[in-house]
Design a protein around this nucleic acid. Structure first.
Lengths: 212, 212
DNA sequence: CCCCCATTTAACCAAACGGTTAAACTAACT
DNA sequence: AGTTAGTTTAACCGTTTGGTTAAATGGGGG
């Protein structure tokens, strides 16, 4: 990862591709538009990264690396499983807010059954599922948590986080319709509710009242 | 909705379009492929329904009507709010399983910020958000539930349901990688966990142990 | 038997798309 | 100045795509 002008161009390209893929999806994204957004000639995409599929894989790999880092850091904290679960949920919500492209791309991949996922990328995703799962198992052995399915529980948390984060833009469209419903939610709101909900949902013992 | 041969053809077209849109998304879907799947000439799509956008709106409208029916039926049941919440969650999971195209299309719409949603369709979606919200408010007034944000709670449940249901096909791709992780989950598993999780997450009082 | 109208078909089209290429530019090194 | 290797550019190309159309089909009523 030398700081050459070439690698800088590559970063700009991958960054632009990430935004366009998040906005339009793999099939909806236009290679010309990615080039325009990156401020480079279209041929540069093929020179520095590769074809559209390679571009997509580069975006996924780049974004997933960030998620992995944040997740590893959060789950490595000390303390009871309940506190660590809160930390991990906070980290998931936080990272997903700091890379808003990522959840949108992921939602589409879930929808398509991973049609555009390179095997290496898919392997990375599966690895992360075990993080919350392991945490739940620990908490259960310590008597903190009830016996819930770890994989489904993890997926519920992640699914809700992706969903809640990505639905915000719909608020603008909803506002145009003059609806009274306010869909907006700040990062802290989402992390708070999800952590709260998950903790109560999973805990063996009742927790003290509302944290809202 | 007369049972004319024309309306029958229209149904086949909308059904085929639903499957293709779910599989490939709006941009990935090919009009010729929809026609082939429906077993009709491509021009028939334009004759009976309209252009690609009209086709998409027809699919959304058709699927959303089914969801609305099931949701209305489930929330109209009698009993305490907790039981009704379980019923609604069961209905959401159930309908989403019986129309598997729907959650996949919805996930993509969330990801794109509703780029392809006709205003009328968007209005329908917003209306349904209030169902769980109203239920939570009731339960809260009756002292059954804690004070959680109704909109975010609803979206969490729906998001988790869509996500859990749609992630199943990824299991096949994951299996090709030889991973030990089993992502598959039956409808009853999902409904059970989600209902259990939500109830514990929302309840004011501790519930009796595991239901798994 | 013929006409009418809804339905269906095959052929067609312009635009948009992903991808390629030969030539031009740049700067470092000899 | 000349050479080389990395980078950038504009123009180009074959294919695919959503959409159209004129002609054909076919059955029910006069």
């Amino acid at each position: 990862m030398a700081d050459t002008p070439s690698s800088h161009t590559r970063e700009r390209i991958v960054g632009a591709a990430s935004a366009i893929f998040a906005d339009k999806g793999f099939d909806g994204a236009r290679v010309d538009e990615i080039a325009r957004r990156a401020g480079v000639n279209k041929a540069m995409l093929y020179y520095h990264v590769g074809d559209k599929q390679a571009l997509y894989t580069a975006v996924l790999t780049h974004n997933l690396e960030r998620v992995e880092e944040a997740l590893a850091a959060a789950s490595a904290t000390e303390g009871p499983a309940s506190a660590r679960l809160q930390a991990v949920i906070g980290a998931i919500v936080g990272i997903v807010h700091s890379i808003p492209d990522h959840p949108r791309i992921m939602l589409r991949e879930i929808a398509s059954g991973g049609a555009n996922l390179a095997p290496e990328v898919l392997r990375r995703m599966l690895g992360m599922i075990e993080v919350v799962g392991g945490l739940l198992a620990e908490g259960r052995e310590a008597g903190e948590f009830r016996d819930t399915d770890p994989v489904l529980t993890h997926l519920s948390i992640v699914g809700a986080a992706l969903f809640l984060t990505s639905i915000n833009p719909l608020r603008e469209r909803a506002a145009e319709l003059g609806t009274a419903l306010d869909l907006s939610a700040a990062e802290t709101d989402i992390a708070g509710l999800l952590g709260d909900l998950a903790l109560h949902g999973v805990s063996a013992e009742p927790r003290k009242g509302n944290e809202k």
